[in-house]
Amino acid sequence: MPTFTALTTLLSKTSAEALGLAMERLEPKPTGVGVFELEDGSGLWEVGGYFSSAPDLTALTILEAAFAAKPFALSELPEIDWVSKVTRELQPVEAGRFFIYGSHDADKVPQDRIGLLIEAAMAFGTGHHGTTLGCLRALDRLAANGFQGRSVIDVGCGTAVLAMAAAAIWPDPILASDVDEVAVDVARANVAANNLSDKIRCLEAAGFDNPDLRQSAPFDLVFANILKGPLIALAPAMSTHMKLGGYAILSGLLIEQAEDVLASYHQNDLYLEDREDIDEWSTLTLVKVR
């Protein structure tokens, strides 16, 4: 079955979403409509329709004018093996001693690296992002400096990639929690796929609000790769549940947000020890001093 596409760009998300809705009502009906932020830093939004027969050019021209969009680029997609194309693009990620890969790259794990199998699926944390990469590198540096985590938790674990990385280098049990039950299911599946079920316990929790989690405190290493707001909100509870001299590896914050996050953690006796900025994202390693 042929696939035709009609793509255009707009200046704002609002107008892109409105055009996307309008495209859903076209005849012939599109089999799919997408609204995407272009990842080239231009700030432009792309709207694309997928059709099983050639789209109505007149209707598209009217939509262009109505939504002040660029002229639609129309094309018929070649019939290619999309699965192979995607797996070629989902390259493994190297982060210090860790090598994050999908099952299609299982034969590429170097002998001197620790391989972690993560499929790009329904939880964040595939390694293809500056925040995950930053946390893995921060962990690698801590371990290289002789730190050994004996009581570790990954708060907002997503795929549980950070918990698995810690479990791969240290012997003690590790907790991985997330507020999203889908992520917890994905985390459990990943932990099982990496033969780490006996070392990592995955549970659903909002921050430290879980009796099992509090019972395991205090922690000497906390990962929290979430977002600025939740990171700031979590600062008092994190400090309460950490050992003196323990570390917190925080990410999910933009470079310009780092000072605000640091300020809230200073107020809770956690001070900056290490920082790495990757792309637009910052990763902070803090130590609890009081």
């Binding site: 042929p2 696939t3 089999t31 799919g32 999309w82 194309k85 995607v86």
Partner: peptide, 8 residues
């Protein structure tokens, strides 16, 4: 189509 091309 539509899953393969759209997601791919």
């Amino acid at each position: 189509p539509p899953v393969g091309p759209a997601l791919g």
